[in-house]
Each structure stands twice: as C-alpha cells, then as structure tokens.
Amino acid sequence: MKRLFLLLLFLLPPCQFAGAHHVLGRPTYSLSEDSNTPPSMQVETQIGAYFVSYMAFPAFPKPNEPGRVSVYATRLDDGAPFQGEITFSVRDDSWLDGWFASRKEVLGVQRPNDNTHRQGFIFKNEGDYIITAEFEDGGEPYIIDFPLRIGEPVAVGPIGVAVGVITVILVGVNLVQRKRLPRAGKQGRRAAS
C-alpha cells in the first residue's frame, strides 16, 4: 500500500508544483520526475495583474553549458496565461561589475509555447547574473528580475567583511584604551597620594 502511494506520488502531474513552505521571490529547488536530470530552480512572484513562475534549468548551470529559463505568467483575476511576447535580457550582478559596468544584453524575444515562454542560454564566464523578463499588457510595462548563478559560488566576501569590521573595532578600541589606561592610572595614583 505504502509503495503504491509512493508510486502515485511519482505520477503526480508535473505541472502541479508540489512544495513545502515557499516564500514569494525566493528560489526553491526541485527535482523533476526523472531523478537522473539535474535539479531546477523556481522563483514565484507577483507583479501587477500577474502571477509569474520562473524556472531555470539546470539550477546551477556551468560555463559553456546550455541551459534555459521558462516563464509562466497568469493573470491574477481569471488565471489566463499571458500570450504576448516576452523579452529576455541579462546583466552582470557581481559586486563591482554590477555597480560600475552593468551592461544589459538581450538574450531573445519569445512567444509562448504551451503557455510558457522559454529562452535558451549559454554563458562563457562564471558569475552572478540577473535575467530580466519584460512584457507589456494593457499599456502597462512589466519588468521582472530573477537571479542566475553560473558556476560555483564565491563566498569569501561576507567572511572578509565580518573579519574586517571586527578587526577595525578591536584595533580602534585598543588604541583608545592605550590612551585611556595610563591616564586613568595616573589619576588613580594622584588620588591615592
């Protein structure tokens, strides 16, 4: 009975995303029904009159490895899928590049296939990128940004910042104390004499 139930779980229609607690705007990861394929990343968000599901496959593409993003946008009022064109573009989201040289490159303009807009990509370089999906409906522009990481994450930044801040505090306090303590000692000796 238990096995039959598990089998039924595997056969659940893939369009019905089955998840635990998820927070809009935050990536969640899942395996497809075929566990040999790598995991995918989903982000769900709400913008204007639309609820948008974005999926990146694979979840962590490597440089020079083909991947794709899919966007499924439905109207909040009647659930009708968006049927117009979506323009996909990309920009670098790495610390310095993101601030100083954030060039936006158009990946492509896509029409829906089976209600889903799909865009393929291949990145040459590792890094953090932002994929932007843009469309227009009822004269309103819709612009949605999603994160995409190519290659392994580099995480020394936060540790460096924490160590740096702590060092500055400790050195600063130490310098102040070097001045304060002899002064306090002198005052104490004067009071005692």
């Binding site: 607690h21 927070v23 705007g25 994450p153 936060p158 924490a162 702590i166 505090i169």
Partner: peptide, 24 residues
C-alpha cells in the same frame, strides 16, 4: 518575510552579523 529559513547563505550572514554586533 524574506524566508531566510530556506536560504543557507542568508542564514550564515545573519549568524555572522550577530557575532559582529556582540563583539562590538
């Protein structure tokens, strides 16, 4: 709100931030 319970990276950042605050 931000859902850091589902984000290991953000969880580590908050943990680090608290060490910095406690030390300061």
């Amino acid at each position: 709100g931000m859902g850091i319970t589902l984000d290991p990276h953000a969880t580590a950042l908050v943990a680090l931030l608290i060490v910095v605050l406690a030390t300061a």
